[in-house]
Design a protein around this nucleic acid. Structure first.
Lengths: 228, 228
DNA sequence: GCGTGGGTTCGTTGCGCAGCGAACTATTTA
DNA sequence: TAAATAGTTCGCTGCGCAACGAACCCACGC
């Protein structure tokens, strides 16, 4: 009577294609309007309204009414983690090529508040190989507070430590099937990359584009995009 | 077309009360027969068979045919993690008392291959306060390889390091809403506790009982059960 | 050989719920 | 004030699918 029912209820919320599409769209981190969610899910506004109500009641997303718009966003990073984890548990059969066919999403996308896709794992690789982040024997990650790169990006590790959120978290990427960097540092990096115009969000979807100056900076500072 | 549909499909599998009950039962780590799963879910064997087929096709559980029995178990630790994460995202409303009403499950239960519930968080607390595990500033956990307790329990940290699995992982407990210890060390501890007859699994469900000698040992060595 | 008990397959029933259009409210623009 | 746009509520339709009983298949015991 206790947990199985709750698990089923939560999973049921994400078990509908329309609702899953909405939540996936919100993984981009931006707040979207009800109408945009309807478009993304490919359903009428009436149907979308019903789905949104369920998601809100289930505490998967939050509402912020503003004028005649209602802005929806994911309720918490935990929801984003759950969705990401759901994405990694798919299609081990009948799909020899791991990952989605959409190559733009594969190269760089947003995972709620940090970078994912090839860019995400490439950045983590670069951080490690350039000594900005070190790896313990058991796989946990440690940020180097003295790193020149973090100083350049105006990321202060010691102030990040004040938050309850872990600095470095591994997050298994559903497209590349390797880890990228999540946690407080992951979020800070995305913000810094945007501030320096290295990457830019696209309109609605989770897609992220690397700007030309960003491509240069990433190659010089992290060795991203060297091979191939 | 790519990920939202897969997410929905995976979530849909766990979105049915009967299937959720089955998977929850399998979180105990033991392999169960199809009939047992039917009983646990409270449905007929015919219906259970259909559900099992779907779970197997969806790679959530694995089959091992043995004689006239079919033993089912969770397909991977990733599935267990997913289920546990689903359990933490529930009922923040209308339920002032966090956690399930089933107090036996609250005290000690199995989370796939490690301990959870009050015992789980208590053990982690004890390990930390007695210096067997230390906590970094960013919250990550580090096992002390020289710990006398691990030697007594015949747990060799350095051999655990050879596996790809992280030694120490935090796992948010859905009943107590605090972290307990997962990862390779969490699994090793459960095994050791069973070998020393400190805890014992019950028949089918995830429930775990602490034996009288176990209660004494846990108090002496980890200070578990002191307060109250 | 025959019974027994575990599991699956088949056909059927019935409820849940996603989907839509139309009508209605509320906010912004003209 | 009227027109337009965002969103919700209300009936209604129809499909999907969970559930069951009955029949059947297989493995074991005698």
């Amino acid at each position: 009577m206790t947990s199985p029912n709750h698990i089923a209820r939560t999973a049921h919320l994400l078990g509908d294609p329309a609702r899953a599409a909405m939540v996936t769209a919100l993984m981009g981190g931006k707040a979207l309007t009800a109408g945009e969610l309807a478009t993304v899910a490919g359903i009428s506004r009436a149907t979308a309204s019903a789905h949104i109500k369920k998601l809100v009641d289930g505490h998967m997303i939050d509402v912020a009414a503003q004028g005649r718009h209602r802005y929806l966003r994911l309720a918490s990073p935990q929801v984003a983690e759950l969705v990401e984890k759901l994405g990694t548990l798919c299609e081990p059969v009948g799909a020899p090529k791991t990952g989605p066919r959409n190559s733009a999403l594969m190269e760089a996308r947003i995972c709620y508040d940090h970078m994912a896709g090839e860019l995400g794992v490439g950045v983590l690789d670069g951080l490690v190989s350039h000594g900005h982040v070190s790896v313990r024997e058991d796989g946990t990650l440690i940020a180097n507070a003295d790193s020149e790169l973090f100083r350049f990006l105006e990321i202060d590790i010691s102030s990040l430590m004040k938050s309850k959120r872990p600095i470095c978290r591994r997050c298994l990427d559903w497209s590349v099937r390797r880890d990228h960097l999540a946690g407080a540092l992951g979020a800070a990096l995305l913000g810094a990359f945007e501030r320096h115009n290295w990457v830019r969000r696209t309109d609605i979807h989770r897609q992220l584009v690397i700007t030309p100056p960003g491509r240069i900076a990433l190659r010089e500072r992290l060795g991203y995009g060297q091979d191939t």
